[in-house]
Design a protein around this nucleic acid. Structure first.
Length: 715
DNA sequence: ACGGTTCATACT
DNA sequence: TAGTATGAA
């Protein structure tokens, strides 16, 4: 269960962005003639028309639901357009959706701190941007508010008949003597509306959003008004919202835990939870979950927006329902496992391709291969069981992965067999392979890339080398070499005492570490705070100038004040962002936080670094002997990479004036690692350019980050 | 014995 | 650690 880290005054501004029926939108963008029609995305057409995995809102109006089969949907909505999920290697291929999701994340991440929560959801931390807006251009000064923001739903606002909803919202947004927290949320609403419009402009996708003081409330709100709308949860309406909210609606409570609360404690709404002491909840559900529940009941959640834009693992799996279950024992012994092996090969092929893309685009290496299998036995007591999942070191190369996966399968089967019935009647109903423990490699250590790619570092971007079977010499040779050496070399992140020394290409992974290091107080539980603030916004609506609102609204005018917070507002295309220059981003970041607190400052240091972010935790603990075990070429790279790290002792003596960041040539040449695995954006030349500069750039950034930790400019 | 697939996280 | 289980989308 999520560990809540409550903060006494939750003055954050958090947003949850939720793409509307995302797969449908992706397909509609591909086939614009489907726009506006009742549409659903369906996979595996054979049985009863396939299963629906996304349903457009037009189709929902006819009663089409996600749990339906294609045929069912046709019954309730004969005109429904059913679009097939792409199929590759005999299984659903979600790459187009992954890539579309990456497009969205990339756009948002240009502006604010993001966490990719799923393929179509993102959390945003807008605290700094909202603070800055409030300080420099508060909504109360706005003469015009753009239409998109005016369409916001503000929970707790009076919806009296006869009163123009938009005018109501406008008054709330611009209310001069409002609670400061409300003002921050108002700023957040303006920003989110702007971001949503930007996403729409660049991707043609609509999304909905929730704006609140923490993630769980933002998430709750984003689902309340869909599609293409946004919902704000003012602090003062939290209690009213939760009091009557069915417990299962709360994230994390939709499953067994929620059921237990209902049946064991008689809790039916979140408000009902308030009766129980923290101790009582802990006693029943453990200390972590108990505390979490206690907080959730009060709308408290300190979970931070993790700055993570890339997935932490990749998986490829398939189920073989009912009659299609795989036979493990075929008629002839030569045929044993033939089906299993076939499908493992397919799954590994896909997985191999995806981790290869991840390596190419994000310089990340997956280190662990895991196999899951489930089996089904028909008989008197039909039962479904999982094999014990098995994992091993991941070797790159499709053929190797296939070989390893099959061995893992057999290992799992060996342990599975002895228990229960000997061997009879068990058929495989599910297989999946996944790649995890993904670590980032220093971009500067080009030899590592060569080990995976052969001589030409950019060769992997060509189609040919993507097909890295055994017959692809440069790849498989270099891979085997890698694998041989790797047994002893204890690659960073490996099981030795060597900690991660890798620079994070991904923006914020290490930021948390910094924050933890520097701000352990955020881990302290702070209970005993006021549960809710009793406030009534509805009674304090100030009179306003109607003529302003009635004036013809021009979007440009209306959003002008918002745009000022984002210097880069109109990039040519979503793809171009991968080549965006880093210096600009640094400026953006600075613009957003000139007067932020020390902690916030440190944060921005991290955010500004983004792709060249140099994490390097526990670097001092690295065992020198480990390096000596590396192949000479890599040793050299690592030494060079590590060397300048000793400079923090020196650098603080010559701090940059005003703590300002100077543009770094490295930062302007590095590609952003936002593209998801499988995202086919060629950034060859950028990679080429960055090699060589990166290493030093990384080190300098480490130094800066370190320095920043202890020398917070307050200006 | 299913909407199928993918991902994250907590617990042990 | 590896492996299991839960939860969400």
């Amino acid at each position: 269960m999520p560990v809540a880290k409550p903060e006494s005054s939750d003055a954050r501004v958090i947003a949850h962005v939720d793409m509307d029926c995302f797969y449908v939108q992706v397909e509609q963008r591909k086939q614009p003639n489907l726009r506006g029609l009742p549409t659903a995305v369906v996979q595996y057409n054979e049985w009863k028309g396939g299963g629906l995995i996304a349903v457009s809102y037009e189709a929902r109006n006819y009663g089409v639901k996600r749990s339906m089969r294609g045929e069912e949907a046709k019954q309730v909505c004969p005109q429904i357009q059913l679009v097939q999920v792409p199929v590759a290697r005999g299984k659903a291929d979600l790459n187009t959706y992954r890539n579309a999701g990456s497009e969205v994340v990339s756009i948002l991440a240009r502006k604010v701190r993001c966490e990719r929560a799923s393929i179509d959801e993102v959390y945003l931390d807008l605290t700094d941007a909202a603070e800055k807006m409030l300080a420099e251009a508060p909504p109360e000064n706005l003469q015009l508010v753009d239409e998109e923001t005016l369409k916001s739903h503000v929970l707790g606002l009076n919806d009296e008949k006869g009163i123009d909803a938009k005018e109501n919202v406008r008054e709330w947004l611009c209310k001069k003597d409002a609670d400061r927290r409300d003002k921050l949320l108002a700023c957040g609403s303006l920003i989110v509306a702007e971001l949503r419009m930007q996403v729409l402009k660049e991707t043609e996708f609509t999304c909905s959003a929730g704006i609140a003081h923490n993630k769980i409330l933002a998430k709750l709100a984003s689902a309340m008004n869909k599609p293409a709308q946004q919902t704000v949860v003012p602090f003062s309406s939290v209690k009213g919202l939760l009091d009557s909210l069915p417990i299962k609606k709360m994230k994390q409570l939709g499953g067994k835990l929620g059921s237990s609360l209902q049946s064991d404690l008689g809790v039916s709404t979140v408000g009902d939870l308030l009766q129980f002491s923290e101790e009582k909840l802990q006693e029943r559900y453990g200390s972590n979950t108990g505390t979490w529940l206690w907080n959730i009941a009060r709308g408290i959640s300190g979970e931070e927006v993790q700055g993570r834009l890339l997935p932490k693992s990749h998986g490829s799996g398939k189920t073989f329902p009912g009659p299609r279950a795989l036979k493990t024992i075929a008629s002839s012994s030569a045929d044993t496992f033939r089906q299993v092996q076939h499908w493992l090969n397919e799954l590994c092929e896909e997985l191999s391709e995806r981790i290869r893309s991840d390596l190419d685009q994000n310089k990340r290496i997956a280190r662990t291969l895991t196999l899951h299998a489930s089996a089904y036995k028909s008989g008197d007591t039909d039962s479904q069981k999982n094999f014990p999942s098995k994992s091993c070191h991941l070797r790159y190369g499709t053929a190797k992965m296939q070989e390893d996966a099959f061995n893992l399968f057999q290992a799992g089967l060996r342990e599975f067999k002895p228990q229960g019935s000997q061997n009879s009647g068990w058929r495989i109903t599910g297989l999946s392979v996944s790649a995890s423990k993904i670590v980032e490699i220093p971009s500067g250590t080009s030899s590592i890339m060569k080990y995976f790619h052969g001589q030409n570092p950019s060769a992997s971007l060509s189609k040919q080398s993507q097909d890295d079977d055994i017959q692809e010499p440069s790849v498989s040779e270099s891979c085997s070499e890698m694998n041989l050496t790797e047994q002893e070399m204890k690659f960073p992140g490996e099981d030795s005492n060597t900690k991660c020394v890798m620079p994070c290409l991904d923006q914020q992974e290490h930021k948390q570490d910094l924050q933890k290091d520097q701000n352990p107080s955020c881990l302290l539980p702070s209970k005993g705070q006021d549960d809710f603030q009793e406030a009534s916004l509805r009674n304090s609506v100030s009179s306003s100038n109607r003529t302003d609102a009635k004036r013809k609204t021009s979007k440009d005018k209306g959003t002008h004040s918002i745009l000022r917070f984002f210097k880069k507002t109109d990039p040519p295309s979503s793809l171009s962002l991968i080549k965006e220059e880093h210096g600009d981003n640094l400026q953006d970041v600075e613009a957003l936080s000139p007067t932020a607190s020390a902690r916030e400052n440190a944060r921005h240091v991290e955010e500004g670094r983004e792709s060249i972010a140099a994490c390097s935790y526990k670097v001092d603990e690295i065992d020198p002997s480990v390096i000596e075990e590396l192949p000479p070429e890599i040793q050299e790279e690592f030494r060079a990479w590590l060397r300048p790290r000793k400079r923090p002792d020196i650098l603080p003596q010559t701090p940059p004036s005003e703590g300002k960041f100077y543009p770094d040539p490295v930062e302007t040449t590095l590609p952003k690692p936002l593209a998801d695995a499988g995202h086919n954006v060629s950034n060859d030349d950028l990679e080429q350019k960055s090699v060589g500069l990166v290493r030093d750039g990384l080190c300098r950034n480490v130094v800066r980050a370190r320095w920043r930790d202890y020398n917070f400019p307050t200006g």
